[in-house]
């Protein structure tokens, strides 16, 4: 057992963990923050996406002990049913989900994607590395690590576009 300290959604967590425990299982099984989902446990689907120190990561692909003192934001940290985060609200409005299982990961990813674009971080779909700007192609590329088998893809893009203030409608 090792002692692990995390800051999850603004709260300090002091844990005694088996060093093999992934960040994902720490959240789900030890902190009972089950909003973060396990779709594959192998970094293949994106359902476990959380934001660590401002960057989105697959929490199944990293051990909790590697995150001593880190700030972790999960879906529960973004909003609650009574006080939805704008991205959560947009997913409801645009029906950006069906079964809901990929959804927390999509939303955490989407929030971070908009910040990446804002920060000028380029992607494979960026034409001009000097000018990173919002476009549907940028978002589709950056969101492609988040699989939605229900395939709400166009609706998810519409939700992100809406939050980015790029809604054409």
């Amino acid at each position: 057992m090792v002692a692990v300290e995390l800051n999850v959604n603004g709260r300090e967590a002091h844990l005694q963990l088996d060093p093999r425990t992934t960040l994902l299982d720490t959240l789900r099984e030890h902190l009972h923050l089950t909003g973060t989902k396990k779709g594959c446990d192998h970094g293949q689907c994106g359902a476990c996406t959380v934001i660590v120190e401002g960057r989105r990561i697959n929490s199944c692909l990293t051990l909790a002990v590697m995150h001593q003192g880190d700030k972790v934001t999960t879906i529960e940290g973004l909003g609650t049913p009574e006080r939805l985060h704008p991205m959560q609200r947009a997913f409801v409005t645009h029906d950006g989900y069906q079964c809901g299982y990929c959804t927390p990961g999509q939303i955490c990813s989407a929030v971070a994607v908009l910040e990446e674009i804002e920060a000028g971080i380029p992607s494979h779909a960026t034409d001009d590395l000097e000018k990173v700007a919002f476009s549907d192609a940028e978002v589709r590329e950056r969101m492609s690590g988040n699989i939605c088998r229900c395939a709400a893809y166009p609706n998810i893009i519409a939700a992100i576009r809406d939050v980015a203030g790029e809604d054409k409608a």
């Binding site: 973060t36 529960e76 973004l78 909003g79 409801v92 959804t103």
Partner: peptide, 11 residues
């Protein structure tokens, strides 16, 4: 929807 987008719907 609100339960799903906030991760509070229990699977």
């Amino acid at each position: 929807g609100p339960a799903k987008v906030t991760g509070t719907a229990p699977y």
